[in-house]
Simulated scan of single mutants.
Amino acid sequence: MPRFAANLSMLFTELPFMERFGAAAAAGFKGVEYLFPYAFAKEDLAAGLARHGLVQVLHNLPAGNWEAGERGIACHPERVAEFRDGVARAIDYATALGCTQLNCLAGIAPAGVSAEVLRETFVANLRFAAAQLEEAGIRLLIEPINTYDIPGFYLNRTAQAAEILDAVGSANLFIQYDIYHAQRMEGELAATIARHLPRIAHIQLADNPGRHEPDSGEIHYPWLLRHIDGLGYEGWIGCEYKPATTTAEGLGWLQAY
């Protein structure tokens, strides 16, 4: 069955961040992911991983001012220099953490910028990042995100992501397929995953509605996870959901796997 990674930005949030590594390991997780590592010294994060025998599965490139509501800058034409600086910073952290894949958040489309310029900016930034990451032995991912949770998010459908991969033309660019976001935007999960599996390097999960644990909503996760396994997917599945109560109380779904 697939390997599950705890998303420490969403799980065990009752604990200080650095204590979440131990909680994830105690719960049976072998890997972790989270939004950003940059508020912490990379040496401290690496020590936390090593202490608890965890793999750093994924983190994001710098994504602008998150606290102010920004959700990525990769499609922002006036911030290309900032994006490129962020690529270098992300590589530095990922190398120290042994993290072999990084996600690039496209961002909310800025007002007054044409669709053509948005696309050109995003494609050019991805070409740059994919090349830089390839030299470091790190894969670059892009993630479609639903526009109900983040109105105006530029990249929001799987077919759009596949078209962007074609336009970039790099063998080092892949799709991060988030089941929750995909369910909200397009449904048709099983067929879409099967169609695009060669280009999917990472999967994340949560149920809908509420973005809670698997088996709490409308997605039939026992069947879907068997389907993903049967397709031959060998990557990690990140558990990026909001526990309905506490993380520990909501982990019953994981015991079946």
Results as ranks from 00 to 15, higher is better:
55 V>M: 14
28 G>K: 01
246 T>W: 04
3 R>K: 13
56 Q>T: 11
81 A>K: 14
80 V>E: 10
255 Q>C: 14
42 K>R: 12
246 T>G: 12
147 T>Y: 15
134 E>R: 13
33 E>Q: 11
37 P>M: 10
141 L>T: 09
187 G>L: 10
54 L>I: 07
63 A>K: 09
5 A>W: 02
210 G>Q: 15
136 A>D: 01
218 E>P: 06
118 L>D: 07
20 R>K: 03
23 A>F: 03
230 G>H: 14
185 M>E: 14
115 A>L: 11
138 I>C: 01
181 H>L: 07
57 V>M: 04
20 R>N: 05
189 L>G: 08
153 F>Y: 13
3 R>E: 13
243 P>K: 06
172 N>A: 07
85 D>P: 14
203 I>V: 05
213 E>I: 00
117 V>H: 13
122 F>Q: 05
252 G>C: 00
106 A>L: 03
210 G>C: 11
66 W>E: 12
209 P>H: 09
2 P>F: 02
63 A>E: 07
240 E>Q: 08
5 A>T: 10
101 Q>R: 08
17 F>V: 10
122 F>P: 00
50 A>I: 06
85 D>A: 15
112 G>Q: 06
209 P>M: 05
115 A>H: 14
139 R>S: 13
220 H>K: 15
26 A>H: 15
234 E>H: 12
46 A>K: 11
126 L>E: 02
